[in-house]
Design a binder for these strands. Structure first.
Lengths: 237, 237
DNA sequence: TCCTAGTTACGTACAGCGTACGTAGTGCGC
DNA sequence: GCGCACTACGTACGCTGTACGTAACTAGGA
């Protein structure tokens, strides 16, 4: 008989494995870990069913016993990596706690530079995502506001952090597995940008580039962004 | 002789066409428009070199005379659609102007639901992106702040708007060209989410879902988010 | 206890992808 | 007018996701 194929459903809804038949060779965690290993080592584009199956040491189609669609493999990856979030007892200072959350998210994305690309479309409700969300809400207990507003805060925080880190990592990830180096690519881009700005068509842009000379303090800018965002939700303002 | 193949470089840096040889059959704008047409009608995944070439009525490989890599086709699409941004004479009220900018961006992404997926990784410096950026800076002239801070504002605004609209559109875009309907998919997801929350493991999440009953006011939430974001940069606070 | 139905593993196959490369035709600059 | 740079485009290759068929295996019901 032909195996069951794609049907609507979240992968987290189906039980990891039912009792009948031979023991499965891998757990979901094994699959996710293998995929994450491939993505970390060779980039997200190297994460193909064949490649991950090879990493696990099994046939390509065997993967489909664990993961109905490739998109679900992505969900597994995001969830597995989300487990790296350290959850602590809320300190009572929600601003400090949220800073810590955001800093962890950023560090996590630096460890797994493919995360931003998977984060935006999925908006997952994987087990670890739920845990993370609950933890954020716990940290926000001292903030007197409706839950809707807190969800908004978390959403904006995640959106901003993701987009910030995405631009931080853009060059590096874009040029991954391309035949020329990131430095070359960047040099070309900067040269082009300079030539455009030099036409005088973008006076404020030119002024902006003239303004900041030294190396950009990415950490400082990140912290400043966080501060502004949290200010916006602080009832003391 | 074999044609020139991929080399580092932004597509905007190379001139649209040089003088020698037969007149090119299409302009860059034609290509971009065709790709946008395909994406609007059949989703981003339908944007393949073959498909776009078919839409233009030319051979697949002819496209490579205009666009060295598929990624560049994406850049063309983003730039073409960015031209839909209406640029006006700044009003002097930078908050109102930025609200208008953000509203336009959101409307634009609703018209072209594939935009968020292309926006995050690229962070382009296409001609229309530069125009857009310059316009934002012009709107921010009344705001007394360094350009670095204004750039940060624009960046955060774009990041938040993109991520907001992405979640607005997530379900619809995810289920595009899938064999089941978006309603079915959503029903399954909500059922799963409910079952998870019902376990009691996520008390605050449960409270949050219990809190907001009625239909969510997406426009209102968007405006509120904008307000908070702009507050964060308002020197009067 | 044996049977059977559901499950696992996995090979084969197919349609579609990006794109390297070769070839043929065209028209500007010398 | 010659030659070369440029256009167009067919063919081909390696890769992708995954539908489907087959064989081995084992837990539950008779």
């Amino acid at each position: 008989m032909a195996g069951k194929t794609a049907e609507p459903g979240v992968i987290w809804a189906r039980p990891e494995r039912t009792g009948r038949g031979p023991k499965p060779a891998f757990t979901r965690a094994d699959i996710a870990a293998a995929a994450v290993r491939v993505a970390d080592a060779q980039g997200l584009d190297a994460v193909s069913m064949r490649h991950v199956a090879g990493e696990l040491g099994c046939g390509t189609m065997s993967l489909y016993n664990y993961v109905p669609r490739k998109e679900d493999l992505y969900e597994l990856m995001v969830d597995a990596v989300s487990a790296e979030h350290e959850l602590w007892e809320p300190s009572g200072d929600w601003r400090a706690d949220m800073r810590r959350v955001a800093g962890q998210t950023r560090a996590l994305m630096h460890r797994h530079p493919w995360m931003p690309r998977l984060m935006s479309p999925i908006y997952g409700f994987s087990p670890n995502a739920l845990r993370y969300l609950e933890h954020c809400l716990a940290c926000l207990d001292p903030l007197e506001a409706a839950y809707g507003m807190k969800m908004q805060l978390v959403g904006m925080l995640n959106g901003c952090v993701t987009s910030y880190v995405a631009t931080e990592l853009a060059a590096a990830e874009r040029t991954r597995s391309l035949p020329w180096s990131a430095e070359e690519e960047n040099a070309v881009r900067i040269a082009y940008l300079g030539s455009q700005v030099a036409t005088g068509a973008y006076p404020r842009l030119a002024a902006s580039f003239a303004e900041d000379q030294g190396p950009i303090d990415l950490d400082g800018a990140f912290e400043m962004m966080l501060g502004r965002l949290l200010d916006a939700f602080d009832p003391r303002n």
